[in-house]
Each structure stands twice: as structure tokens, then as C-alpha cells.
Design a protein around this nucleic acid. Structure first.
Length: 579
DNA sequence: AAAAAAC
């Protein structure tokens, strides 16, 4: 029963029908298509046993069995301890001017913290929205028609806040229904389509949603259309084509919601083809990405163009580093901030492993070996650059891996759309991609993510592996690392620990260099990594002995360094982001 | 810290 609830409220984008067809597809495959070696058939149409994807909120249940056998020196997570530490840090960083920080949600099991004045009570069912805020039956039935039966944590807390017209910064893990958490209140607040009104005063779109990639904007648009069913809402996915149509006043004045990437919008504003002075709701999805240096000025320009005095702004993400949060809070007016679960932390139902591959040349053989054994398609493989994405996809295909696809932003719009289409239909078994797919994309079938190239930040890691384990389903994430990745290994390892996956002990024993020293120390750490990694595969006795000796040596070294440089503490930093 | 993505 509970399992069913979790699945069905499954977040914004769960689509039972599609999932079903995926499973059928995979079930069919081997009998028909000459037994493709190594492709596991997924019969798990039933629910995974552990749907409580916020179990880490409960003190000590976050442990995951150490299923990987590279080393017997595995360290299990200590969620309770970490959470205590984090709470302390959060308490200390509370802003003076803000209202009371309070623990809410006795009903929901997962922990939700909110900051800000007069935080509205969360809802328990979508039906509450009718009584409390007069949300229309049409909107509510559109929700239930799409199998959104119960609000997720972010929806239960976020929707009332937005309906009370407050500004909001919302942080909630990947795959927990953030899209619906902002679309529902916006649709409700807009009331009725502009086209159905006589004279409303004001022209142009009343809501704008910004996302960092075309694919994500497209997906948000699809979600919005689900909620818009049955009425003549004009929800525009902004593109080159729509940009020119929108310069026609008659069209423009009938638009309700614009969903776009920032630069596209800025281009139209600068050409004088678009005015945003009637925008009363502005959402930044993947807020930390939207506020990073490359997007910031564009986003600021959009914000500046939204001149309506009563504009409501909201930012959403699974990660929000301190710098981005500061920026966000500066943009918002008397904001409420809510955090579901732990910030910058993946869901514990994603089983994560770190795999040592000595160097770049060893990655392809490792992946081929991996693909020669049973795996769960579709598999998402992340690389660091577009050329690497292309060539890896080619290599895999040449090595006989079936249904390999690739997607990066260097491809044409059509190529990109086609690739996403194949992915959605379950035709891709291995999708090689760049950071473009790292955020927001919701492919229900993805059970495994491979970080072929090491992610360049904790945020990137969290979002990449968050393509799996969505809407209460389990997932698996494998991350390759080479000697060159050593400087950032420990930060990622801490993320694994924090979210209930185990990490070989030697990784945690790696010295923690100060930021300044990181580059110079690359060599030192590299040697350390190699030595420690080489021990894998030796006999257990030798391994253990070496580990202990090695960790002692490292400890001593660490202490010596700590004497010289106070910024290197013996205590692991909790915030693994290092930002 | 650094590439990718945005047109």
C-alpha cells in the first residue's frame, strides 16, 4: 500500500504506461534478436522492495550492504552522525533577519527544513488544495489522470508556499517531482487561459520558466501540457520558430506560459520582439546551474525584463552551493527556503560504486567488459567532452554493442530530438552523452548510470547519477576514476558515504590537500592513489596489512602537514562540495 | 577547477 503511494505520487514525471512498454520491450528482445550477449532482462515490473527513498532521514537505516568486493576494507555510511553535523552547520549559518527555522512534516517521513517567515503548512493530499486555495477541479483531475496521486515532499511543502504568492528557494533530491511542484501552483494562480478572457489589462505571457538545456525545457513543456489538458492554455516552448511567431502581437497576447532556455529569451528581448512586463511568475529550474557564471548575466537580463511589480520568483534544484544560494536569495523577495532531505546528496536508493581504472586507456576495455556481462538497459554513460562522447559511441558500436546512441549539444536540433525520442521509446540501450543530459532529464527506464569520465564537481555527480533512482525506483551508478582524478576523489567519496553507499577505506584515507595546494600536490596524491589501488587484487592478508601500514603513514603525513598548514584539518569536512 | 551549454 505504502509502496503504491510512493510510486504513484512518484514524482512529477512518472509514466506507468511508458514504463510498462519499456519492460515489454526488454522482455521481448533476447528471444527475437539473436540473444544479445550480456543484456539482462528486467522482470522487475513489480515495485522495488525499498521504496522509502528518504530512509536516510531515519537515524541508522541508511546502510547499504557492501556488495562490491574490491576491498574488504569498506566503510559504511554514518548517516546519523553526518546529519547531526549538518544540522549544526545549518543552525550556525542561519540568517539573522530570517524567521524561525522549524522542523515540519510529521506526516511525511522524510525530513524537511524550512527557513523564512510565516511558512504555510504543507498539504497532505492534492485534494487539500481545493479546500485551502480553491484550486480548480480540472487541475486536480489532470493531476490524478496522470497518476499523480499523492504529493511528494517538495510538492506538499512547496505548492502552498507558491500559492500564497511567496518567493521560494526549493531544494529537493533528483526525481522527487520538482517540476510539478512549481507548475501546479502557477497554473492555479493564472486561473484561466488568457485567450478565454475579455480584457485583462496587460499583454504577453504571465509566467516564464527557465531551464539550462533545450531537452529539459522540452520535458517541462510536456509536463505542463499534461496539466493544461482540457482548456485552451497557450504554453509555448520557446524556440527560434516560436520566437518569430511571438513577435506578432495577436499571438503574443494570447500566450500564458513561456518555457525557454535563457539565451533564446534574451535574444528575443534584445531584438525588441518580446516583452516580459506582464510576467507574474518566474521560475529558475536547476537554479544553481542558471546562476553560474555562464548563465548568470543572461538570467539577470531576463529578470530585469520582468518588470511587473507583483512578480513571484522561485528557484528549484537538487543542489544549491553556498554561492548560488546567496545569489538566489538576493534575487528573491522575503523568500522561504525549504530543503527536502539533505542538500547536495543523492538518494540512498541509488547504489553507488567507485571503480579504479588506472588511466584513460583502460576505460574502454573496462566498459566493454562491463557490457559483456548482464546489465540493465538503458544505460546512461557520461563523458567529459563532445568529441569523447562521439568517439566512445563509435567504439562501442564497432565492438558489437547493440543500440548505442549518443547525444551532445554539438549535434543538430533534429539529431538531439531523435536521440531523446529513441531514449523515451526504449530503443537506446546505451546512451553516451555529455553534461547536457546531466540535469533534470527524466527517463523512467534508466537503472544504471556510468560516469566514464569523472564528474568535475559534486553537483555534477549528484545530478548525473540522479538520472536513475527516480520516483522511488532503485538505481545503480558506477563511477570510473583514474590517477588523474585523485584530487577530487575524496569529495565524491564523501557524497557516496553520505547517501548510504560504501567506499573503500583507502579512498577516505587519502590526504586532503588545501585548495591552493591541490594542483602542486597532484603528483603526491597520484602516487598515493596508485599504491592504494594496486593493493586491490592482492591477497586479503597482504592487503589488510598494507592498508593499515599505509593509512598510518598517511595519517602521520597528514598530521605533519596540518602543523604546517592550519587549513588542513584532521576532521573530514562535511561539505564535500568544497565550494 | 573546468567543460558544457545557451544563440
Amino acid at each position: 500500500m505504502e509502496a503504491f503511494q510512493l510510486l504513484s505520487r512518484g514524482g512529477a514525471r512518472f509514466d506507468k504506461q511508458r514504463f510498462k512498454s519499456d519492460v515489454q520491450l526488454f522482455n521481448k528482445a533476447p528471444s527475437g534478436e539473436a540473444k544479445v550477449k550480456g543484456v539482462a532482462i528486467s522482470h522487475d515490473a513489480q515495485l522495488p522492495p525499498e521504496l522509502d527513498f528518504f530512509k536516510y532521514a531515519k537515524a541508522s537505516t541508511g546502510k547499504r550492504k557492501a556488495g562490491d568486493k574490491e576491498s574488504d576494507a569498506h566503510v559504511e555510511s554514518k548517516p546519523a552522525k553526518l546529519e547531526r553535523k549538518r544540522r549544526k552547520i545549518e543552525d550556525e549559518s542561519k540568517d539573522d533577519h530570517s524567521g524561525a527555522e522549524e522542523e515540519v512534516s510529521p506526516i511525511q517521513k522524510h525530513r524537511v527544513t524550512s527557513k523564512g517567515s510565516d511558512v504555510p503548512t504543507p498539504i497532505t493530499t492534492f485534494e487539500d488544495l481545493r479546500e485551502r486555495y480553491g484550486v480548480s477541479s480540472r487541475l486536480l483531475s489532470n493531476l490524478s489522470d496522470n497518476s499523480y496521486k499523492y504529493p511528494t515532499g517538495i510538492q506538499a511543502h512547496g505548492i502552498p508556499i507558491l500559492l500564497e504568492r511567496r518567493d521560494l528557494a526549493a531544494i529537493s533530491p533528483t526525481g522527487t517531482g520538482k517540476t510539478l511542484a512549481y507548475l501546479t501552483p502557477i497554473m492555479s494562480a493564472l486561473g484561466s487561459p488568457i485567450s478565454s478572457r475579455k480584457n485583462d489589462g496587460g499583454h504577453g505571457a504571465r509566467a516564464v520558466i527557465l531551464a539550462p538545456t533545450r531537452e529539459l525545457a522540452h520535458q517541462i513543456h510536456n509536463e505542463c501540457l499534461k496539466l493544461a489538458a482540457g482548456r485552451k492554455w497557450r504554453v509555448v516552448l520557446f524556440s527560434k520558430a516560436t520566437a518569430s511567431t511571438l513577435s506578432d502581437k495577436n499571438v503574443r497576447d494570447k500566450v500564458d506560459i513561456i518555457i525557454s532556455t535563457p539565451l533564446r529569451l534574451v535574444a528575443s528581448i534584445q531584438e525588441g520582439k518580446l516583452e516580459l512586463n506582464n510576467v507574474q511568475h518566474l521560475v529558475l529550474d536547476e537554479a544553481d546551474r542558471m546562476l553560474d557564471s555562464e548563465f548568470l548575466s543572461q538570467v539577470q537580463e531576463v529578470i530585469a525584463a520582468c518588470t511587473h511589480p507583483d512578480i513571484q520568483k522561485a528557484v528549484f534544484s537538487a543542489t544549491l552551493p553556498a554561492g548560488a544560494e546567496k545569489l538566489a536569495m538576493g534575487i528573491l523577495r522575503n523568500p522561504i527556503r525549504i530543503i527536502v532531505g539533505l542538500k547536495d546528496t543523492p538518494l540512498p536508493l541509488i547504489a553507488q560504486t567507485l571503480t579504479y581504472v588506472a588511466d584513460d586507456a583502460s576505460k574502454l576495455p573496462s566498459l566493454l567488459t562491463y557490457l559483456s556481462q548482464p546489465y540493465n538497459p538503458p544505460l546512461l554513460v557520461f563523458t567529459s567532452t563532445q568529441p569523447r562522447t562521439t568517439s566512445l559511441a563509435e567504439e562501442l558500436t564497432m565492438n558489437g554493442i547493440p543500440n548505442v546512441d549518443c547525444l551532445h549539444a554539438g549535434m543538430t536540433k533534429k539529431e538531439r530530438d531523435d536521440a531523446v525520442g529513441r531514449m523515451r521509446r526504449g530503443e537506446s540501450w546505451v546512451m553516451v552523452t555529455t553534461e547536457v543530459m546531466a540535469r533534470g532529464m527524466d527517463f523512467k527506464g534508466i537503472r544504471e548510470v556510468i560516469n566514464y569520465d569523472f564528474p568535475t564537481s559534486v553537483q555534477s555527480y549528484v545530478h548525473r547519477i540522479g538520472r536513475t533512482g527516480r520516483a522511488g525506483r532503485e538505481g545503480k551508478a558506477v563511477t570510473y576514476f583514474t590517477d588523474d582524478d585523485a584530487p577530487f576523489l575524496k569529495a565524491i567519496a564523501n557524497v557516496l558515504l553520505q547517501s548510504g553507499s560504501s567506499v573503500p577505506e583507502w579512498i577516505l584515507k587519502l590526504p586532503k590537500p588545501s585548495k591552493i595546494k591541490r594542483r602542486q600536490m597532484g603528483k603526491v596524491k597520484r602516487a598515493d592513489t596508485v599504491n592504494a589501488a594496486r593493493k586491490i587484487g592482492r591477497s586479503d592478508a597482504i592487503k589488510k596489512r598494507d592498508m593499515i601500514a599505509g593509512s598510518k603513514r598517511r595519517k602521520e603525513k597528514e598530521l605533519r602537514e596540518a602543523d604546517k598548514d592550519n587549513s588542513v584539518g584532521a576532521e573530514d569536512r562535511l561539505d564535500a562540495s568544497g565550494a
